[in-house]
């Protein structure tokens, strides 16, 4: 399976993370998205006329939406990641697309200088974070640590990158304790891999000794 990848892309990281958690080996081909804009090269447009990354190629199958890539990887390797009912998962995959358009765009604006209505995309992102915070708090009260149950699913992997990278786009995660616990839970899943801006989990430091 070949992943056409850009190291700083949140959407590409979704796929790298999912594959790592499932123990699937990807052949990663770096595309010079910035500064060369090679995702718009003739060769890449032949593969994906929309000119976006990531692109996943598995034999004859060419996928251009990260949500479909997560579905594909899970279906083939570990169907439990698809959750119990697609009705609980699909809305979060759509929601992940909204996060990409808000927080993801704020980040591309702040880091790589993309044109955006920065006030508007940050405001949209904050509204979505508040919605996710409320949902994750409810989940916790019901004894569930993830978006769609007690175990992580592709919904969590889809929403995690742009959420965790929100500070890169000037949106703080300080006001969202449930989101922070959820991110911690995802980072503790065996096989987790990091990307620039998302650190691996360090072991909790021992409590400082009391001085008196």
């Amino acid at each position: 399976m070949i992943l056409y990848d850009y190291v700083l892309s949140a959407s590409c990281y979704k796929v790298r993370l999912m594959a790592a958690l499932l123990g699937v080996r990807l052949e990663v081909k770096a595309v010079n998205f910035h500064p060369a804009r090679d995702h718009k090269s003739a060769e890449m447009l032949r593969l994906n006329p929309q000119g976006t990354l990531p692109v996943l190629v598995d034999g004859d199958l060419v996928l251009t939406q990260s949500a479909n890539m997560l579905r594909h990887l899970a279906r083939q390797n570990a169907p439990q990641w698809l959750g119990e009912a697609s009705g609980q998962i699909d809305p979060w995959l759509d929601f992940a697309g909204e996060l990409n358009a808000s927080l993801g765009m704020a980040r591309l604006h702040d880091v790589l200088g993309f044109d955006a209505d920065i006030v508007q995309v940050r405001r949209d992102g904050i509204r979505q974070l508040r919605k996710m915070e409320a949902h994750l708090a409810e989940q916790r009260f019901a004894g569930m640590g993830f978006l769609a149950g007690v175990a992580p699913t592709i919904a969590d992997i889809a929403c995690f990158p742009n959420t965790a990278l929100a500070p890169d786009g000037g949106v703080s995660l300080d006001p969202y304790p449930s989101i922070r616990l959820w991110m911690r839970a995802i980072r503790s899943v065996p096989g987790f891999v990091e990307m620039p801006g998302i650190h691996r989990l360090h072991e909790l430091a021992p409590a400082p000794e009391r001085s008196r």
């Binding site: 850009y6 770096a30 010079n32 060369a36 090679d38």
Partner: peptide, 18 residues
Amino acid sequence: PMADLVSFQQMIFMQDRS
């Protein structure tokens, strides 16, 4: 490949950015 050289450098620098 050029894209890998660029990715490597951008990855390193983005770790510094935060």
